[in-house]
């Protein structure tokens, strides 16, 4: 489980447009890494390039190297589908499959890939994943009800359960709590602290308190101006970023002087 990710000289494009330039960073296993920065600075784009979700858009592509425990994710014979099985993702808006029950949503990663698994094993896996996402107690009596009947916060935890059910090495979270109320946000944050025992977690957030609360490492992305590529300005332990950052821009952003 939990692998490290090394990114070197990564440029990310939408067609001809260079969206993010020159990222060099190492993401530690069994920790939470937070990415912060103003809107449009490319932090979500960077996150999506880590599990090759970026290239789902027509014309989108990258240059450079992303390696997970030494294995090049963009290697010539690497299937992006396999990459995504090892690096799970949770999105900004909860997106459970509306046609499926709660149970089927958690089992979706197995079922949709037509992986054979005994019913009892699958039951175990669903229970484990829902326990891992702190949702088991709330839904164990209605596993066969549609997932769309859950609240927003529950749906997001269901999506986390769905992501960890395929047992990935890394979990990417793209502003997972920004569409949720404060109570649900707290539940998600608690969950992250538990999950980092087993997974490498990378989270994009707009909420600096959240980054300070949950993460060990923080990366600050910024953009020089419209049409310019976003860049990773500073990457340091979270405590340092929020108390004594190396860069002036980081300090300005954190103290609320812009962004």
């Amino acid at each position: 489980m939990a692998k490290r990710i090394d990114v070197s000289d990564l440029n990310i494009y939408y067609g001809d447009f260079l969206a993010v330039a020159d990222v060099n960073v190492s993401i530690e296993p069994r920790s939470v890494t937070a990415l912060i920065g103003p809107s449009g600075c490319g932090k979500s784009t960077f996150l999506r390039s880590l599990n090759r979700m970026h290239e789902v858009l027509p014309g989108a592509h990258v240059e450079g190297k992303v390696a997970m425990d030494g294995q090049d994710l963009y290697g010539p014979d690497v299937d992006p589908v396999d990459v995504r099985r090892q690096i799970g993702m949770v999105f900004q808006r909860p997106n459970p499959f509306p046609t499926m029950s709660i149970y089927d949503n958690v089992a979706a990663g197995i079922r949709l890939n037509a992986r054979k698994m005994k019913r009892t094993e699958l039951d175990d896996l669903v229970e484990r994943s829902l326990l891992g996402a702190n949702l088991w107690k709330e839904v164990k009596d209605r596993l066969n009800r549609p997932a769309s009947g859950l609240s927003g916060g529950q749906q997001q935890r269901l999506c986390i359960a769905r992501a960890i059910a395929v047992e990935p090495d890394v979990l990417l979270m793209d502003e997972p709590a920004s569409a949720l109320d404060p109570i649900s946000t707290l539940a998600i944050e608690d969950l992250m602290t538990e999950l980092k025992e087993r997974f490498t977690i990378v989270i994009v957030t707009h909420n600096m308190q959240q980054a300070a609360r949950v993460s060990e490492q923080t990366g600050f992305f910024n953009i020089a101006g419209p049409g310019q590529p976003g860049r990773l300005i500073e990457f340091n332990p979270t405590e340092k970023i929020f108390s004594n950052p190396d860069e002036k821009a980081t300090e300005d952003y954190i103290s609320g002087r812009f962004g």
Partner: peptide, 19 residues
């Protein structure tokens, strides 16, 4: 769309697609 990595990229590769 795993296809079309324009030739601008020095590291552009042929797309891998399953059967």
């Amino acid at each position: 769309m795993t296809s079309t990595t324009p030739s601008t990229g020095s590291t552009s590769r042929a797309p891998v697609r399953r059967l």
